[in-house]
Each structure stands twice: as structure tokens, then as C-alpha cells.
Write a protein that binds this DNA or RNA. Structure first.
Length: 584
DNA sequence: GCCGTTTTCGGCCCGACTGTTTTCAGTCG
């Protein structure tokens, strides 16, 4: 059982306990532990109880439960609760506006054990008669069930950022609006986004809310109070997020007075886990932090900017991307804060395709686009032969392509062009191209496209084969975490990363929004181990370089700075750092 | 269930909005 599965078990346990009426803080302990375990890159398999309790939020009890899960693959307490609370009851938690208390009530008083039964009861009007329920709640339930297949969509960051930016730009022109900013997970640059947050300061909240309600991207208003409005946007016209076609993102707009902008921005940016700590720290200092400011007693004290709040709490300013209650509260001075990589620092792109395999632009066009983008070096990395559907190159075609690259690159003195290949690591743990050919390249990315479902020890073995091959410079497509139920290959991260470190092999963050291959947690681990990362666009067209921003977002969330990112280095330094050149 | 230069017990972040209510519980973020 891996860490993600442990976290899922604890989340499941928390759901069940909640419906069972357990102490809310006990439930929170399980949820906190789940978040913590998710964020740990090292496998907890085989870790002793004494070490587990060193993890914040894990005490004796949870440590024992982790060991039980690791050794037996299940948890007695979880099985007992599952027997007590039917799965259909837990599903009711997915209904908006229906929480554990109401679910428990429906289960106990009406004996409902499935969504189907609930639908039937609501249609017959049996739900409205319960105490605390009414006609409106019944309607909410029916609407919730009707749209349940629309629930749970998390959009790629790349799908929603343009929407938020457009709406923010338009609302900034509304009279009385002085400041406006995206908040929430969009501002933290999370790879997937549940719903959107927008914060504004204005003399007249009603004007801003009216403008949002009338915005062309907005379909309907879900709720509206004096300071807060929730709207449903129109569905995305052409989403990259799989399964998002027809789904409608929701957006919260919050309007606060100007003196509260920093406090509100801090609060609505989150994460929730980060905020719980900032509020606790405020309390320890005899202050109270809410979205209106840092208060002394009942009195507003400050809150115009985030900076003054962090300073007053005795904290260094934490970049939004790193507000996850991981390490940020341990930073003492600004020197402890990673100087996060920016798009402008990227000098090279080491993964792109041409019409020779499945790209849509020629070699010359890709070079022109890279130069226009200001890149100082690039690698042409078409597919190897095994990827036949992408017209992958065999040895003969590849050598011919490199010959052409060597001829063409003489023309340019403002950009270095490397002869590369995205070489598949086959199911039988051999490379798709012969060593003789690989030896002639300037840059090789080893990737797995086939047999992703092999057992973890086999995937590990394949990755090690590539890492131990003297000509492979980088491993790409590594810990793919595609949205939905399509996990990437499973392998022993500890072993593979250690081997990459030992052999001087780099790891790739693929900037394509649909396959941010190195998760932020794993990229952070690579950083801690001193393994260089490259952030590549995997461009298949001359427009592909625009995707770099999403790779940068991922890298920032992993706390990477230019020194961790090999393609942010000057070409000479980058070239010298390749292990194929270190031996010379 | 976790945690401790206030503590091994008694805390655990805080507020908006809704619907069902006559003062608030539940849900959500």
C-alpha cells in the first residue's frame, strides 16, 4: 500500500466517522493526517512507529493504523465502520448543501441507504417533513442528484486561468473597484482547480456583484449576500481537462473594504491548512486574524497588505505557491525562502517534436519559434521507433535527421541546437534504440510509453536500465498524475531517485497541462536530493512554447529556483553538467 | 485523535450564507 492509498483510507475513515457522529476534532485529525501523508514523497512502508510519531499530526494511534495498513493492506476499524455505514450513505456527502449531520438523519430516520432511495423519497415529499429539512432542501437534494455526474470535476489550471484573468480585468473597470486579485488555488498555482476565487475591494459591493452577474462568461448566480457572491460560469468552450466538456466551473467573488485587502487575500488564498496555522499563531500573540484584518481584541489593527500581516506574526513572507503548511513556518529569514524560478529565467527547452514524428511544424519552423521566444538552446527530440503511431524514428531516420540538424545549426550563432531523441524504455527493460546510435546524440530523454501497468518492481527495473545507460541524460514522463482515475506508472521512487542522483541523470517536468509529469511533491524531493530538474514544453507545434508557464507553475510549487533547474543555466554550464561530458 | 516555555486535560481557526427557524444549526470555504 502506498502513501496515497493510506491517505485515501484515512479520508474514508473521516467521512464514516463524521456520519457516525464522531467528535469533529477527531475527524479533523484523520483528515490532517491524510493531507500530511499525501505530501510525503518517501514510502512509509517499513517505517517504525517511533519514527511515524515524529511526523506532525501523527500520534501513537495513527502510527499504529499506518503500520496496520502497510502490513495487512486493510484496517479493522475502517472495515467495521464500512459494515455499519453503507457505501450509498457515504455517497450522499457528495450532494452540495448536504453534510454529515443531514446524511446521518436521512439514514437513521428514513432508513435511506442509497442515492436512488433518496431520490425516490425526495420526489414523494418525504424528505421535507424531517426536522430541519424543508421544501428547499428537498429541491437541493434533487438538483444535487441530477447533477452528480457533473460533480467532482477538477479543471487543469491552464483551463481556468484565462477565465479568471478575463473576469478580473473586466471587473477592475467597474466604478469604485480599487483592487482585484485571483485568490484560492488559482493564485497558489495548483495543478488542478476545483472552483475559482476572486477578491475585490470596492466602495460599493453591489456594483461589482451586479457586474459579475451580468458578465458574458457567467451563466447564473447561485448565492448572494452583502459581501459574497457565488456564480456558475458557462461551460468551457474547448477544455483540455478530460471529461470537462459541458461542465461549469463555479466562482466565488468576495468584496471587502480596502483596509482589509491584505487580510482577505491572505485568507482566501489559503491553503486551508496554512491558514489554520496563521490564525493559531495570531491567537498565540494575543491577536485575532480573520478576513478583515489582524485584530487586537475587537479593534482592527492592520491588514492592508499580506506583507504586514506576515511580518506582524513574526513570519517571513510566504509565496502563495508554498502555502501548504509543509515547511514554510520553519523559515526564519527571507534567506530561507526559495527564490522561485520564473519563466524569464528559462534559457533552453530540451523536449520538442517536428513533422519527422508527430509534430506539426518543421525543424526550421521550430527553430524560428524558439528563437522568437528568446531561447538560447533547444534539443530536437522526436519519438523513437516503438511509438509507431506517432511515426517514431528508427536508427536510420534518426541519424539522417541529426545529420540535417548538424548542417542547419551552423547557420545560427544565437541559438544552440542539440541532436536529441525521446527514446522509449521498452517493456523488457531495454532501450528502443541501440547504444551505438544513442552514443551519437547530444541529449537523450528516456521515457516509458508502453506497459505502464506493469508491476512496480518491473517499472522500477526499466527506469534503472535507462538511468544506468551511459547515454541517457534525463528521464521524462515519470510520475504522471493525470486527472481522473488514470494514475501514472507506479515505481519505487526512493530507489529510482537515488540511482538518478548517483548516475547524474536529470528529471523532467513536462509543461503540458495534461501531463505535468513530475508532481510537485516529487520535484521537491528531487530538489532536496540535489537532482537537477529540466522544465520542458514537449512542444508539438510552434505554439507549444506557451505551455512553459504551466511547467513553471509546477516548479514553483515544488520550491525550485534557477539553481535547481538545469535549463535555466547558461549553455556552457548546462553542457558541462551532462554526465556524458563529465567523463571527457 | 493530537498536542503541550501557560497544559498529560482541555483545548483544537473563523466567518458568510442558507434554510429553517423565532435564535440557530448545518454547510461551506
Amino acid at each position: 500500500m502506498n502513501n496515497i492509498e493510506i491517505a485515501a483510507s484515512f479520508d474514508q475513515l473521516a467521512d464514516l466517522l463524521e456520519i457516525d457522529g464522531a467528535n469533529a476534532f477527531r475527524v479533523r485529525a484523520y483528515r490532517n493526517a491524510a493531507r500530511t501523508i499525501e505530501g510525503i514523497a518517501e514510502s512509509l512502508a517499513g517505517v517504525q512507529i517511533a519514527q511515524l510519531t515524529e511526523i506532525p499530526g501523527i500520534g501513537d494511534d495513527l502510527a499504529k493504523k499506518i503500520v496496520e495498513l502497510m502490513t495487512t493492506g486493510q484496517l479493522t476499524m475502517l472495515e467495521e465502520l464500512k459494515a455499519k455505514v453503507p457505501a450509498g450513505v457515504v455517497q450522499m456527502l457528495l450532494l452540495p448543501g448536504i453534510g454529515p449531520k443531514k446524511v446521518a438523519q436521512l439514514h437513521k430516520e428514513l432508513g435511506i441507504t442509497s442515492l436512488a432511495q433518496l431520490k425516490q423519497a425526495a420526489e414523494l415529499g418525504g424528505v421535507a417533513s424531517l426536522k430541519g429539512f424543508g421544501k428547499k432542501t428537498e429541491q437541493t437534494i434533487l438538483e444535487g442528484i441530477a447533477s452528480l455526474d457533473q460533480q467532482g470535476v477538477r479543471f487543469y489550471l491552464a483551463d481556468v486561468v484565462p477565465l479568471v484573468q478575463q473576469i478580473a480585468a473586466d471587473l477592475s473597470k467597474v466604478p469604485g473597484v480599487s483592487q482585484i486579485s485571483p485568490a484560492g488555488s488559482v493564485r497558489r498555482l495548483k495543478e488542478t482547480i476545483g472552483d475559482l476565487d476572486l477578491l475585490a475591494t470596492s466602495e460599493d459591493a453591489n456594483l461589482v456583484m451586479d457586474a459579475l452577474a451580468a458578465h458574458p462568461l457567467v451563466e447564473s448566480v447561485i448565492a448572494r449576500g452583502p459581501t459574497k457572491q457565488r456564480v456558475r460560469l458557462k461551460s468551457l468552450s474547448n477544455p483540455m481537462t478530460p471529461g470537462a466538456q459541458g461542465h461549469k466551473p463555479e466562482m466565488d467573488l468576495r468584496v471587502v473594504p480596502e483596509k482589509s485587502f491584505g487580510a482577505a487575500l491572505q485568507y482566501f488564498t489559503g491553503s486551508k491548512e496554512h491558514n489554520v496555522v496563521t490564525r493559531r499563531l495570531a491567537k498565540e500573540k494575543g491577536l485575532m486574524l480573520n478576513e478583515y484584518g489582524l485584530n487586537k481584541g475587537e479593534e482592527y489593527y492592520l491588514g492592508r497588505t499580506e506583507e504586514e500581516i506576515y511580518a506582524e506574526l513574526g513570519l517571513v513572507f510566504v509565496p502563495p505557491e508554498l502555502r501548504e503548511n509543509r515547511e514554510e513556518f520553519g523559515w526564519k529569514t527571507s534567506a530561507d525562502v526559495p527564490k522561485l524560478i520564473t519563466e524569464g529565467e528559462i534559457l533552453g527547452d530540451l523536449h520538442m517534436h517536428t513533422t519527422e514524428s508527430d509534430g506539426t511544424a518543421s525543424l526550421e519552423d521550430m527553430i524560428a519559434a524558439a528563437r522568437a521566444r528568446g531561447l538560447k538552446y533547444i534539443a530536437i527530440t522526436d519519438h523513437s521507433k516503438r511509438v509507431f503511431m506517432a511515426n517514431g524514428l528508427n536508427e536510420e531516420r534518426l541519424l539522417k535527421q541529426w545529420e540535417e540538424i548538424r548542417r542547419i545549426r551552423e547557420k545560427y550563432d544565437d541559438i544552440k541546437i542539440l541532436c536529441g531523441v525521446e527514446c522509449d524504455i521498452l517493456e523488457n527493460a531495454t532501450m528502443d534504440l541501440s547504444d551505438e546510435v544513442l552514443a551519437q546524440a547530444d541529449w537523450i530523454i528516456g521515457v516509458i510509453h508502453f506497459g505502464l501497468k506493469q508491476a512496480p518492481d518491473l517499472i522500477t527495473k526499466r527506469l534503472l536500465t535507462a538511468i544506468e545507460n551511459p547515454y541517457v541524460d534525463c528521464i521524462g514522463h515519470m510520475t504522471g498524475r493525470l486527472i481522473g482515475k488514470r494514475p501514472g506508472a507506479q515505481f519505487d521512487v526512493e530507489t529510482v531517485f537515488a540511482a538518478a542522483k548517483e548516475h547524474g541523470v536529470m528529471l523532467e517536468i513536462n509543461a503540458h497541462p495534461a501531463r505535468l509529469d513530475l508532481s510537485d511533491v516529487h520535484a521537491a524531493k528531487a530538489r532536496a536530493m540535489g537532482i537537477p530538474i529540466v522544465i520542458n514544453t514537449d512542444s508539438h507545434s510552434t505554439y507549444g512554447f506557451e505551455m512553459l508557464q504551466w511547467g513553471i507553475a509546477q516548479a514553483r510549487r515544488a520550491g525550485l529556483s534557477a539553481e535547481n533547474v538545469a535549463n535555466a543555466w547558461e549553455f556552457e554550464k548546462f553542457e558541462k553538467s551532462l554526465r556524458r561530458n563529465q567523463k571527457k
